[in-house]
Nucleic acid binder design. Structure first.
Lengths: 105, 105
DNA sequence: TTGTTATTTAGGGAAATACCAAAATAAATC
DNA sequence: GATTTATTTTGGTATTTCCCTAAATAACAA
């Protein structure tokens, strides 16, 4: 149960999660999307895995990574609640933002 | 426009923002809420200030810190949008089939 | 079993982070 | 001007993070 917020702090890790949000990707696919050495990406995978933000499954010689959407959601809603985004001053919340908040509720 | 997400990664800084969410606090008040030396807290204030997450106003000998609610909101909604929280997750292709598709490609 | 592909772990260095004590600064008061 | 109060900046250390190259592992194919 490591810190998910720390895992979200790095832009590469956020991008990885964003890519995995659409569909599962292999380690190689993900590594290919960044101008970084594979071991560096592997390190980022480990951080995300430790935070339980992603899961991995072996598929022959390749490893398939998946986003743990519910855990990501929980982390973000945790932040929203901590700062009570959407609550008073409610009048200041823009409609589009309010709609977004309502949807994830 | 520094990295707000990095600023949100530290539990003490999140707690500071949470406290400031209710009302402005002086540096001393905030420092008193944590079991850390004042210079340490001052450092955290700087990180939050650099990320534009808080503002400061001198009030005599004391410094009054305020949360920049709209910026905090923007950061969080930015994350929500990045991961499209609230939207239906993409139907994930079964692992075996995904591997097959990858080889065909 | 030898080789090939995919990916990790190991090891190391540079930079950033988090903390503290001591010194410096700013404003108010004596 | 000197003192007090509030807070920061400075300077230092320990730990962590981020990145790399090289070596190790895992599954598969010849």
């Amino acid at each position: 149960m490591s810190d998910a917020y720390k895992a979200l702090a790095h832009p590469v890790r956020r991008e990885i999660l964003s890519m995995l949000r659409d569909r599962a990707h292999t380690a190689g696919e993900l590594a290919g999307a960044f101008d970084l050495a594979k071991p560096t990406l592997s390190g980022h995978f480990n951080v995300l895995k430790s935070a339980n933000l992603i899961t991995v499954e072996r598929q022959g010689t390749t490893l398939l990574y998946r986003a743990n959407i519910s855990v990501i959601e929980d982390a973000l809603t945790g932040l929203m609640e901590m700062f009570r985004i959407g609550e008073a001053p409610a009048a200041d919340v823009a409609p589009a933002k309010a709609a977004l908040l309502r949807r994830q509720k």
